[in-house]
Design a protein around this nucleic acid. Sequence first.
DNA 1: GGCTGGCACTCGACCATTGAGAGTGCCAGT
DNA 2: ACTGGCACTCTCAATGGTCGAGTGCCAGCC
Lengths: 338, 338
Amino acid sequence: MLDDRKLAILRAIVTDYVSMQEPVGSRALVERYRLDVSPATVRNDMAVLEEEGYIAQPHTSAGRIPTDKGYRLFVDRLGQVKPLSVAERRAIETFMVGALDVDDLIARTVRTLAQITRQVAIVQYPMLTGASVRHIELVRLSPGRGLLIVVNSTGQVDQHPVDLGEADEAQVADLRGRLNAALLDSPASTIAARIARLGGQLPPYLNDLAGRVLPALTELSTQPHTTRVVVGGVPNLTRFADEFETAVRPVLEALEEQVVLLKLLGEVASAGDVVVRIGQENSYEPLRSTSVVASGYGIGADQRANLGVVGPTRMDYPSTMAAVRAVARYLSRYLEQG
Amino acid sequence: MLDDRKLAILRAIVTDYVSMQEPVGSRALVERYRLDVSPATVRNDMAVLEEEGYIAQPHTSAGRIPTDKGYRLFVDRLGQVKPLSVAERRAIETFMVGALDVDDLIARTVRTLAQITRQVAIVQYPMLTGASVRHIELVRLSPGRGLLIVVNSTGQVDQHPVDLGEADEAQVADLRGRLNAALLDSPASTIAARIARLGGQLPPYLNDLAGRVLPALTELSTQPHTTRVVVGGVPNLTRFADEFETAVRPVLEALEEQVVLLKLLGEVASAGDVVVRIGQENSYEPLRSTSVVASGYGIGADQRANLGVVGPTRMDYPSTMAAVRAVARYLSRYLEQG
DNA sequence: GGCTGGCACTCGACCATTGAGAGTGCCAGT
DNA sequence: ACTGGCACTCTCAATGGTCGAGTGCCAGCC
């Protein structure tokens, strides 16, 4: 029931509204996009599009704006691939040349993504499945309280506090030695099994301590750093100063909640390619008036970390999607090369 | 030239403007604060205060608002100590009970400070001078590139990438062993000297490598974590939605620049007590229309880390200063107790 | 049957006018 | 030295009128 012309009109409405930021009428439409029909015809088609719920009027006698449903159709069927500009491409390529370590790499990534999309960027720390354990440190901070630290071959450092129970310094040193001896240079893929095996071979006097430490170690070495996200480009939110109380505040609040961001990225970027969540489609209530564009990234097929941007529903989807995809790919490639 | 009554009027103006957020006139002043004189008298005094530059009129026939100079006088001589409310005090006490480690402690601190001041909070990572080196790890990531990691007794983990030059795995392991043997459990106060001494005792074949690693190690062990700050309470900026383009955007941009924040805190909080920078007094241009309230904190007299808040010049200085001071003290005490 | 030009209609944006109110500065009087 | 009174200024909110963009509908045309 939506013929080609109606789709073309919807595409034009989305495009125009995104770039002009104000409702678009039938006359402007035929003038700016070569539709080769009269405004009256466009109006008839727009009436149909409105009935079907793809566009809406803010008020009578104003132009139309796309609805979430309209954006969805646009993204799924109408968006044309928009290649990145030379400057954008160069920005991506430049940003990682000087990365010192993983922290720095992620910081640069989030900065770059925010810059080229001109939106708020979110990058989750990568899972480095190719990494192997380089050192395990078990520190006794005070009686009962300790800290477990795992250093892997990429230079990533993960830590987790542990309750040491009644263990004394000697027991801690004993276990630390055994852990390092048994697990050093284990690839991440086999580490869980090795930890389990080690658990059965320990002398009885270490059983209590091991029972407290080993679960944390398993968690650390199989899900390193997954719990951290980095946010950048927050100042870009000031571009929407008009809808401040309604839209910006909830977004700022969401951005301070690591847990929320992780859940958000996790839900959105399940498949390998770029995924878009538009307005109401977001399950997290305060972000119902924004869109999220995200992608998984990582080494090989095992992409379990995510990155993306958050912006207004009226965003330039083709460009944003292209940028997110490009950054995700570059980052993956960089990680593969070490 | 400023008699008591004029000072009382200035205090009343500041107090009223801060709570009401709008210019205050002579009538309202005598009504709300028991000044025991007529509005006309107040007007005369206000004329003097305006001449001296302590207050200003947004436009003719509007009330007066304090200038930066007026706030300065208020903070220096007129602000009365405002004790924290029970709820605030309890919030501070509660926030650290469950702190797992240093990261968690800092995260909780920034959250608490943002919550009770209702402003943007900034907390710098603490210098732990009482700490001793617990483990040194030197990892070779790829030929030439390496990572130096220092774990201290409080569970804090610092890392720094190093250029390993031509060194092979054996040399790296050799140096790592010597570093740990020589430096383990060194208190931070003596570590620099020990590193220097060790440098002279190394066999020649380690000279090149040591020359690359030792400077980084010295830096890490004497200035651990000082380069990191954590920001919280950003959503509070939405309370000033009116002055958006002018004030909020530059603040958001500043908050993304760790370097700027460090410099800011460093400049402000030099002495042990709470320090206030008001508007123009800030050297960093984009923050010229905001005020910074900061304090040093740390263990003993050796307070070299800082925390504070950033807010509009029209803030409640007594309350904010009390909150910053209280949080700084609690945090210091907590760190001392380990 | 689908497209088009024409037309009456609606409604928000914009502008000028106006009145109310808050606040001031000044001055004469106590 | 303080006060009451007064004329003046200026902002803010409300009012009302015009303008124009945009629509829906309809009759006519290809």
